[in-house]
Write a protein that binds this DNA or RNA. Structure first.
Length: 415
DNA sequence: AAGCTCGGCAACCGCAATATG
DNA sequence: TCATATTGCGGTTGCCGAGCT
């Protein structure tokens, strides 16, 4: 794509910004908004390229930026999300309110990566380096630890992503089918059944099926309970994403042997496991394009709503998916999943989520404007970096699931 | 006190994705 | 549909201050 560099014009200033320039940019944006970044410098009287202005605003001048030392919880969140997402700093920043991707990236490179390395942990794979070594020595298919690391990350992410998505869709479909059956049995009109049957996340059909009530027979008696134990006893298919939590657990033990670093991963692990055991109110929100699937207030209750919306809410989708991944990870070690809420350090992070945390003043921003839902242990709303980019994405998954035998035990051979 | 080294961070670079005409 | 403009993002650079010799 032939694109001329924006900063190659003669006479444009580069380098550090002066307070005067900051003031000019700030004043202009406060009054007019940034509009087109390309046009902004001339309008604001700045001898800068638009890109430089945008970066300055995004990384420094924005009023909703938190600066200063990272808290332990923020560090934990970064590490966890990095294990999940790799170097996708913007995605990670979405879950760290008031922190920019650049700041997180810098902090990772200058602090966290070194600490992990120092502790004998591969900052790429988030596994103890010995493990990687053993894997390689044991005749792994990977030719090198480096390639293994890369593949590991990609495979972990993709596998977990696909499985989570498929599970969401499968479960929502089971819900829908079960509801259909129930409605049919109850003598519901065929028209209603038809409309429900034709529901798809992207259909845009204005049908609101509320299965949220824990006391509803629909919610409690359906075999396709989305968080049913049968559905979650799929450890043989579990993605490798839980490695990071296993690793954290390992580190929590080894921390007892290595007290040299005041920075403690064991704290992270402790919090994690604590929340596994204690959390029963975690919400999973996942939005298919045009439709909301939310696992409601209680896993045990199997609360489950399908909210078909005109406009998609992709930011919630991402948040929900991250939550789902974390939740999935937390349960990968076996056991009764209904007993496990999502650990989600991200969402329990008082710095990050509203759950009993500090104010987290909400701000309008073009980035990182995650919203905390008051009273909810989870849900923040994010604004960008969507993983569900394709309008037909969920339809494709639905079709994929459709072609598979819809087994109630959730062993649909999707992968 | 001067010079050197190193770490932290703001800013830049360039590619990719997306929007627009 | 294509070309171009714009924006987003991740990697990298270089400045600056703190600490050390």
């Amino acid at each position: 794509m032939g694109r001329s560099p924006c900063c190659d014009k003669v006479g444009l200033k580069k380098g550090p910004w002066t307070p005067e320039e900051d003031q000019m940019l700030l004043a202009y944006i406060e009054e007019h908004g940034h509009g087109s970044w390309r046009a902004l410098p001339s309008k604001a009287g700045l001898q800068r390229c638009g890109k430089s202005c945008r970066l300055r605003w995004t990384n420094y001048l924005r009023p909703d930026i938190k600066r200063g030392k990272f808290s332990l919880q923020e560090e934990q969140t970064i590490i966890q999300l990095h294990a999940l997402l790799g170097n996708r700093w913007s995605a990670i920043a979405t879950h760290l309110q008031k922190r920019t991707d650049n700041e997180i990236k810098n902090y990772w490179n200058t602090h966290l990566k070194k600490r992990l390395t120092k502790m004998g942990i591969d900052p790429v794979t988030h596994k103890p380096k010995n493990d990687a070594l053993l894997t390689t020595q044991a005749g792994s298919n990977y030719s090198s630890s480096k390639s293994a690391a890369n593949l590991s990350h990609m495979a972990q992410w993709e596998s977990a992503r696909l499985e989570a998505e498929a599970r969401l869709v499968r479960q929502s479909k089971l819900r829908s089918h079960s509801l259909l059956a129930t409605l049919a049995a109850a003598g519901s009109s065929s028209a209603t059944a038809t409309s429900l049957k034709s529901w798809s996340p992207s259909s845009g059909i204005n049908v609101h099926v509320d299965l949220e009530s824990p006391t509803s027979t629909l919610s409690t008696a359906l075999p396709g309970n989305p968080i049913s134990s049968s559905d979650h006893h799929e450890d043989d298919r579990s993605p490798s994403i839980p490695h990071m939590f296993e690793f954290i657990k390992d580190v929590s033990h080894r921390q007892h042997d290595d007290e040299s670093d005041d920075w403690t991963v064991c704290q992270l692990a402790a919090d994690h496991h604590s929340s596994i055991n204690d959390h029963h109110n975690h919400h999973i929100n996942a939005v298919a394009s045009g439709g909301t699937i939310s696992c409601g207030s209680s896993m045990e209750a199997g609360g489950w709503t399908l909210n078909n919306k005109e406009s998609s809410n992709d930011d919630v989708a991402e948040e929900g998916f991250i939550s789902l991944l974390l939740c999935d990870s937390s349960t990968a070690g076996g056991g009764d999943h209904q007993e496990h809420g999502c650990s989600s350090e991200v969402n329990n992070n008082s710095e990050v989520s509203g759950g009993g945390g500090s104010g987290n003043g909400k701000n309008s921003s073009n980035k990182d404007s995650s919203e905390n839902n008051s009273g909810s242990t989870t849900t923040t709303t994010t604004n960008e970096h969507e993983y569900y980019e394709d309008k037909n994405y969920w339809n494709s998954i639905l079709n994929l699931v459709d072609t598979s035998s819809p087994s109630p035990d959730g062993d649909t051979p999707i992968f």
